[in-house]
Design a protein around this nucleic acid. Structure first.
Lengths: 364, 364
DNA sequence: TTGTAGGCGTTATCAA
DNA sequence: TTGATAACGCCTACAA
C-alpha cells in the first residue's frame, strides 16, 4: 500500500502561496532548497555545513557559498527535534506582579546572558514568586516539555523542592547557593557567614555595641547563612545577641526602611544596622536620615552585595561585595559542562565576599 | 524498495537503554506511549488532549486521565516543528561584558516575564552591546533560525538597523520608543520631551538660572527626545541654552558622576543638574556631595525613570516616573496580538511620564 | 467518533 | 566521497 507519493517532487519547489498582506513572511529556505540548487543530496549539504571530514573540499566550499548566498539557516525546531536538545538554558527570577528593581539581578542576568551566548546556548527567562504554584508550573513545564537543556537556580531555600524535583527528573542544573537537603548538585555559594562575621567585627572595632540586623524570611538559605555570621560576629566580639535588635525585611528597600524605622523607634536604638543585602541597607539609611541621624557618624549602616549602586549612595555604603557577574558566568560554565556530560573538576565552590569599607560605617 | 520496516513496532516499547550513570534521564513519555497504553490511535489521543469536539466524552476523560497518570507532556520541539511557531518572544539587553545594574531593566524584564507567561509564551533573553556585530548576529540568528515568534526592542536608536531588518524579514516586533526612520511599527513611547520641559519649568520656578543637563550619546532616541525637552523648557522659561552646561554621560552612575564633576569644576558651575536618567542623576548627586554641596538646598538634581531606588536616595530624587513594568506588559500584549495576526486598536502609544518632586530639588 | 498516512526540516545510519 | 532513507514527536487532511 502506498508507494511513497510518486513523482511529486514539486514539494520542494512550490512553496506556500504568499498571503494577501504585503508584509507577509517569506517561507524560509530549507536545506532541501540548497541541495536542489546544487544538485546535491541533502545529506551532503548537511554534512558539509556541519564540518564533517568526509566531504570533498570543493563540495564543502560550494555548499557553504550557496548556503550563504541563499540565506540558509537551519531550522532550530527541526534541529532540536532531531538532536533531542534545545541549546537553551532556563532561569526563573524570584519576582512577579509589580515592582522589582534589584540591581543584583540585572547583573546576574547580564552574566548569564554573556556566558550562555559565548557557549552557543540561549537563555530562557521567566518570573515567578518563590514557592508558589506558578513557580512549580513553570519548572515542570520547562522540564517535561523538554524546552530547556538545563536550569540555573537562584535564591535557594533551606528546603527547596526544585532540587528534589530536578534531581529526580535528571535535568542538569546548577545553583547559586545551597540547601539543607541531602541531594548533591553543583553550586557556587558565597561564604557570607564569615563575611557577616567580619562585618560585625569591623563595627565592634569601631566601638559599636548595639548592632542591629535586618534579615530576610527564614526559609531562604542566604538568611540562615548571614544571620549565623552575624551571631558568630557578635560572639567573637563578646557581645550578647539581643533579639530586640533583630528585625526582618524582605530584601527590598521599602522592607529595609520599615524594619529600620521600627528598630530606631525603640527606647535604646541600635548604633549600627546591618542589612541582609544592600537594598535593605539602603532602606535603613533612609529611615536613619528621616530621623535626623547622620549615617556614618551618628549611626553606621552596612549591607551585602556590592553592586554598583552601593558606591553611589549617600554616604557610600559599606558592604560585602560578591562577584555577581562572574558567578553567573561560572555557573553557566558548570551547567554546560553538566549538559555535555563532562566531569566537573569542582562541583561545589565557595567564594569569599570582600569587605568594602566606606563612609556609611565611618570610612576607612 | 522498503516496505515500511515490517513488524518492528517494538520501536515504541523498547526505549534507549539507560546509560551507566545512575542519574540518567528517563526517556520521556510520548503521545505514542499514551495511545499504546489505551489501545487508541495517536490521532485520537492528540485530539482528545487538544479539546476537539469530535471525541467521545468517555474517551476524552480516559485519555486525560491516562496522560496525567503517565506524566505525558507534549514535546515542545515536535510541536514547534509541526505548528511552525515557537511560542517564544525574544528580548536583548543592551549590555555585555561586565557590570550592568540598571533597575530599569530588572523592572522591564519582570514585566516582560509576567505578561509573556500569562499569554502562554516564553521569553528568550540575551545580552549584546548596542550596534555591534554581536548584536547583529544575535538578531539574525534568532530570526533566521525561527527561534522566536517575535521580539521586543528597547533603547531605540535614531537610525536603527533592527527596525529595517525586522520589518524586511516580516518577523513581528514592537518597540519601546521610536526611531527617525520611515518604517511603521507598533510602539510605546514616553513623552519624555514634554516631561523634561516640565522638569526645567519646575527648576526655573525654584529660581534656578544655570540648569545643566547630562545626556547620553546622540545616536540614542531617548537622548534626542529628552534633550529637546530640556531645550524647550529653557526657552519657555526665557533661559538661554548654554552649551557649557550640557555634558554627556552614558546612562550609568559612574558616567553621571564623571560628567557632573566636570560641570562642577567650571568657573560658574550650575545650580541645578538634570540627568537623562536616574542613574546619571545619582552619579551627579555623588559628585555634588563630594564637593561639599548639599543636594536639595545648595544644588538641585533631578533624573528620569522613577524606579524604586529614586525614592531611597539621600536626599530622595526628583524624577520623571515612567510606568516601566506596565509598559513592558503592554508591549508584550501588542506583540502577541501581532503574532496572532490580530489588528491592534492602537499601534502607536504615547505615555506621559509623571513628575515626582522630592527633596533633591528642594521638595514639594 | 476513530484511524491512516503523510510531512514539518533536520541528522544519522548505512550502503553504494 | 556521496546518496537514499529512516526516524525525531506531533498535528491534521482525509478516509473509514
Amino acid at each position: 500500500l502506498g508507494t511513497r507519493t510518486p513523482g511529486n517532487k514539486g514539494k520542494t519547489g512550490a512553496r506556500r502561496a504568499p498571503a494577501g498582506h504585503p508584509r507577509t513572511r517569506r517561507a524560509p529556505v530549507t536545506i532541501r532548497d540548497v541541495a536542489a540548487r546544487l544538485g546535491l543530496s541533502i545529506t551532503t549539504v548537511s554534512r558539509a555545513l556541519d564540518g564533517y571530514g568526509d566531504v570533498a573540499a570543493a563540495t564543502r566550499t560550494r555548499v557553504a557559498r550557496a548556503a550563504a548566498a541563499m540565506g540558509y539557516v537551519p531550522s532550530s525546531a527541526a534541529r532540536r527535534l532531531r538532536r533531542n536538545r534545545s541549546d537553551i538554558i532556563g532561569y526563573i527570577l524570584p519576582a512577579s506582579g509589580g515592582r522589582f528593581s534589584d540591581p543584583f539581578f540585572s547583573e546576574f542576568i547580564a552574566g548569564l546572558g554573556d556566558e550562555v551566548t559565548a557557549r552557543g546556548f540561549d537563555l530562557l527567562v521567566s518570573t515567578a514568586q518563590p514557592d508558589t504554584e506558578a513557580e512549580r508550573l513553570l519548572y515542570t513545564r520547562w522540564v517535561s516539555s523538554r524546552l530547556v537543556d538545563g536550569v540555573v537556580l537562584g535564591r535557594m531555600r533551606l528546603q527547596d523542592w526544585r532540587v528534589t524535583y530536578l534531581a529526580a527528573s535528571g535535568l542538569p542544573f546548577v545553583a547559586h547557593g545551597r540547601t539543607r537537603q541531602r541531594e548533591k548538585y553543583p553550586y557556587i555559594e558565597m561564604d557570607s557567614r564569615s563575611g557577616f562575621a567580619s562585618l560585625v567585627a569591623h563595627l565592634a572595632a569601631r566601638g559599636h555595641r548595639r548592632i542591629a540586623y535586618i534579615g530576610a524570611p527564614d526559609a531562604i538559605t542566604l538568611q540562615a547563612e548571614r544571620y549565623a555570621g552575624y551571631c558568630d560576629g557578635l560572639a567573637a566580639a563578646g557581645l550578647r545577641l539581643d533579639r530586640a535588635l533583630v528585625a526582618t525585611g524582605d530584601l527590598t528597600r521599602p522592607g529595609g526602611y520599615e524594619a529600620a524605622r521600627r528598630l530606631l523607634e525603640r527606647g535604646e536604638p541600635p548604633t549600627a544596622i546591618i542589612g541582609v543585602n544592600d537594598l535593605t541597607a539602603v532602606g535603613a539609611m533612609r529611615a536613619a536620615h528621616e530621623r535626623g541621624l547622620r549615617v556614618g557618624t551618628e549611626i553606621a549602616v552596612a549591607g551585602y552585595d556590592g553592586t554598583e549602586d552601593s558606591a553611589h549612595t549617600q554616604p557610600p555604603l559599606t558592604t560585602l561585595k560578591q562577584p555577581t557577574y562572574e558567578t553567573a558566568r561560572r555557573l553557566v560554565g558548570m551547567l554546560v559542562a553538566g549538559i555535555r556530560g563532562e566531569e566537573l573538576p569542582e562541583r561545589e565552590i565557595i567564594v569569599k565576599p570582600q569587605l568594602i569599607v566606606r563612609e556609611s560605617t565611618g570610612g576607612a
